[in-house]
Design a protein around this nucleic acid. Structure first.
Length: 731
DNA sequence: CGGGGTAGGTTTTTT
DNA sequence: ACCTACCCCG
């Protein structure tokens, strides 16, 4: 078989990774070094050169988008599209296994996946049943606790609490939540992974089957794996299979979500005879941009160590702009975008990045005013919108009357006179009799468990659902959707809502019906990453649709038209753009003030800045605002420390008008450095024996450990120990 | 029961 | 500033 097409166009390191002997391999792939390419070509190599069966390949990613891309690129490279290969997200693959092995996993056959929103609703109900105050025990926090435990592989009974009242209570909530999920036959995202992992441990026969099957495991973005994902890979790999882990410790930005950067460090110890290959040649950015990125990330300790380089030229310096406020900052970004587009370039070559979504508003207004098309990523995705979830809940009820989560959601939506009290009566009945809410309502009406008005409103609701089911028939997904949206009264309900919002919701519901029609013929969303293994029984179209809606809440719609892309730094990971703006480079915003304190958090912020910088191919702008209107007040934030960490010869300041002379990035806001010593404050001018004059920018720690960052006129930004530096104050 | 007004809390995000 | 979650009254 001719395999040259697999190796053509790869550099030496890439080729080394692709053709490495079958076995464990860690590929540390820097930004823009051709990571996906290596994964895809490795799969092709295994199949066409090593003779591996597509059946034996398992490729795992984090997002559906990445999975879809990997699948399509692999298929394009191979002679015969490998249907039997498994490519998917951790969650998608776990879900698939659980559907096939529901009995081995101890789940009901018709278990349903709930998203984080549903989870929070369930937890809220648990809190009420435990009589806990929601102010003191915020549902969000409880969800966080539960998910964290599951991500660490711990069941409620395994949580060690000691005497700690907080832990004791959270454990109680977790236990109770587990029971509610079990009784309702629902599975949350973290549960998919944990349940699958437990199944392997408890059923060695099942594990053995998959160990034999998946001789080749490939994992993308390995630095983002959490404890349970790492453990699962280890268990599946056993000591035979070959695992290729690809990742970049410098791009680990999901620690707050449970990702363990250590996993990438541990890999070579835990997996036998691991080869390590570093991909450091960057094909994306200019030399200047890479130099800035390298210089910045060098401020982090605890790295595997890696330095990106490029064979292309230096390119233009990074341009730094210090705006008066966020409106001017936005105008600057829009102006420069305009120039770029006028120069004959596409709007879609531009990305505007920010730390938090709240920053998008002024940017949006500036682009609107400048008449530049833009598109904002992030925020609520289609299947997470309330009106869509309502409609999906009706669809679920069509299928399974006993789906309590759905029942709770729509029982009084649109409002039909079933208030909290009536629902409570049914809940009590359901708990007493150990049946679903639907069953409890039905029985209650029949045997007098429910009376009077309560009985009649529920009778009407049950009849509505039954009638809708009859109207829709059982076979057409599109019909079910149409009925759920129209006969339920949802469309009318939203039509009556005032303003844009009601209209948008009504349109979303119509879009849902259209999506169902498409799904019916294609049996998949356009971005479907799942392979057709063909070795599992397919559920009904409706089941499949609801599962996919839960697991793939995202942007399944194709986007049309060239537009500037606006998104958070997090969502920009994996993307690249010729022109990139990173906005809001201010202390407190980026790095976020929430990341102060814990040292690990600050390093993660720096990695986020690294990710942002390395998105840029040709030109990078960094902007900040001296004054920013946030949370209803003006805040004055000093320039981000990350600006000072860039090597001096990589950037230039852009000033408009250029009349005002001031220190680089303007004078920071005065703020006491250390309670113990009021003499030094942020913004203070100081003199140092060796470095000369500078301005205090930042401080860290207290007492003996206190350090300040001083931006010296000559020497640039330095961190100094207060105890040793012998700084002289100047004014 | 349901609509409207007010108080609290606001990183990042996938699945 | 803005969204949400809750409280009170019709």
């Amino acid at each position: 078989m001719d395999i040259t097409h697999i190796l053509d166009g790869l550099n030496e390191r890439q080729r080394e990774a692709v053709t490495a002997p079958v076995g464990n391999l860690l590929v540390v792939a820097g930004a823009g070094s051709g990571k996906t390419r290596v994964l895809v070509h490795r799969i092709a190599w295994l199949i066409e050169a090593e003779g591996a069966s597509p059946h034996s390949v398992l490729a795992v990613t984090f997002t559906n988008k990445a999975a879809a891309e990997m699948r399509s690129r692999t298929e394009a490279l191979l002679d015969a599209p490998p249907r039997a290969m498994w490519v998917g997200t951790f969650h998608g693959i776990a879900h698939r296994l659980l559907r096939m092995h529901w009995q081995d996993a101890g789940l009901p056959q018709n278990f349903q996946i709930i998203d984080s929103d549903d989870q929070q609703r369930l937890v809220r109900r648990v809190l009420r049943s435990l009589d806990l105050d929601e102010q003191r025990w915020p549902p969000r926090q409880a969800c966080g606790f539960i998910n964290k435990q599951k991500d660490e592989g711990r069941r409620a009974r395994e949580v060690v609490t000691g005497e700690d009242h907080y832990l004791v209570t959270q454990k109680k909530i977790y236990e109770s939540y587990e029971e509610v999920c079990r009784a309702g036959g629902v599975v949350d995202f973290a549960e998919l992974l944990l349940r699958c992992h437990e199944m392997w441990l408890e059923r060695p026969d099942v594990l053995e089957h998959y160990r034999n099957r998946f001789a080749h495991v490939l994992i993308d973005e390995f630095q983002d794996t959490n404890t349970i994902q790492y453990a699962s890979v280890r268990v599946l790999a056993g000591d035979r299979s070959s695992v290729m882990a690809v990742g970049d410790d410098d791009q680990s930005i999901y620690g707050w979500r449970g990702a363990k950067i250590e996993n990438i460090h541990r890999f070579s110890q835990d997996f036998r005879d691991t080869g390590i290959i570093r991909l450091e040649q960057n094909y994306r950015s200019t030399g200047t941009i890479l130099k800035a990125a390298n210089g910045l990330i060098d401020n982090n300790t605890d790295r595997l160590g890696k330095e990106l380089w490029t064979a292309s030229g230096d390119g233009d310096p990074i341009l730094v702009h210090d705006a008066y406020n966020e409106v001017e900052e936005a105008r600057f970004v829009a102006d420069r975008s305009h120039e770029w587009i006028d120069g004959g370039n596409g709007a879609d070559e531009i990305a505007v990045l920010y730390r938090s979504n709240a920053q998008s508003r002024p940017l949006e207004e500036a682009f609107l005013r400048a008449d530049i098309p833009y598109r904002i990523y992030g925020g609520l995705r289609f299947f997470e919108r309330a009106e869509i979830k309502n409609a999906l809940a009706y669809m679920r009820m069509m299928n399974q009357r006993h789906a309590d989560v759905a029942f709770e959601r729509i029982v009084n939506l649109p409002p039909r006179g079933i208030g909290p009290k009536s629902v409570d009566a049914v809940r009590v009945l359901a708990r007493e009799r150990g049946v679903s809410l639907w069953q409890a309502a039905k029985e209650g009406i029949a045997d007098g468990g429910l009376r009077g008005r309560t009985a009649s409103v529920f009778a009407a609701f049950l009849a509505l659902i039954d009638d809708m089911a009859a109207e829709a028939g059982t076979h057409s997904l599109r019909e079910i959707a149409r009925v759920c949206v129209e006969t339920s009264g949802l469309v009318d309900y939203h039509k009556k809502e005032p303003g844009e919002r009601g209209l948008a919701r009504k349109e979303n519901l119509e879009e849902l019906v259209a999506a169902c029609r498409r799904f019916e013929t294609e049996r998949t969303f356009p971005l479907d990453p799942r392979g057709d293994g063909g070795d599992e029984e397919a559920g009904s179209v409706l089941d499949d649709f609801l599962d996919q809606a839960a697991l793939e809440s995202g942007e399944y719609q194709a986007e049309a038209g060239a537009a500037v892309q606006m998104m958070t730094l997090h969502s920009a990971k994996g993307l690249e753009f010729p022109l990139v703006f990173i906005t809001g480079l201010e202390e407190g915003l980026f790095p976020s003030k929430n990341s102060d304190g814990e040292p690990g958090r600050m390093e993660e912020e720096r990695r986020l800045a690294y990710v942002g910088i390395t998105r840029a191919m040709r030109q990078l702008y960094l902007t900040r605002a001296e004054t920013r209107w946030m949370y209803g007040t003006d805040s004055y934030n000093p320039a981000s420390r990350f600006l000072f960490e860039l090597p001096d010869d990589t950037w230039q300041e852009v000033r408009l008008g250029g009349a005002v002379k001031r220190a680089r990035f303007g004078a920071p806001t005065p703020r006491a450095v250390d309670a113990e010593d009021g003499a030094l404050r942020i913004g203070q001018r100081v003199h140092h024996g060796k470095f000369g004059e500078g301005i205090v920018m930042q401080s860290e720690g207290h007492g003996e450990r206190a350090r300040v960052q001083v931006n010296f006129a000559e020497a640039g930004a330095k961190w100094l120990m207060l105890g040793f530096a012998n700084l002289e104050t100047l004014d």
